[in-house]
Simulated assay, not measured.
Amino acid sequence: MAGNLEATMDTRAARYFKWLLFWQQQGRCCYCGEHVVLTYRPYEAVRPYAATLEHLQRRADGGTGHSSNLAMACKRCNNTRGERDWLSYASWRRKEF
């Protein structure tokens, strides 16, 4: 989950990765494709559309914190993905099947 990832990174690194991924993903969630809000204000960070850092391959499945395994997701998608692999979850969120 994003909170755990961001807790293990220093604040500047987490902010940098969020900004970089926000730019690369054109401000959209990697799962649902909806626009996200990049914020560092605690009261906005709990909203469903707040940008979070996400491990594409879950750490429980052997994923690492390497930048190639990180994406930006809205808080709602990050919190509801569960144990599903990222590609199946993205297809489900976008109603592709």
Results as ranks from 00 to 15, higher is better:
F22E: 01
E34R: 12
E44A: 12
M9T: 03
Y43N: 13
F22A: 03
Q26T: 14
P48T: 11
G27L: 05
Y40R: 01
K18M: 04
Q57P: 02
R28A: 12
C32A: 06
P48K: 09
E44D: 14
R41T: 10
A50W: 11
V37N: 03
P42T: 14
R59Q: 14
Y49M: 11
T11P: 07
C29T: 08
D10M: 09
C32Y: 02
Y31D: 03
W19M: 15
W23P: 01
Y49E: 12
L21D: 02
K18C: 02
H35S: 10
R15I: 05
F22L: 07
C30E: 04
L21R: 04
Y31A: 02
A14G: 06
R28Y: 05
Q57H: 13
M9N: 09
R41D: 05
L21F: 11
G33Q: 09
R15A: 06
M9G: 07
C30H: 05
R59P: 00
F22K: 08
A13P: 00
Y31S: 00
V46C: 10
R58M: 09
G33N: 10
D10R: 06
T39Q: 04
V36N: 00
A51C: 15
F22D: 00
A14P: 04
Y49F: 15
K18P: 00
C29K: 02
Q25S: 09
E34Q: 14
T52Y: 02
V46E: 10
C29H: 04
Y49D: 11
T11K: 12
R15V: 07
C29G: 04
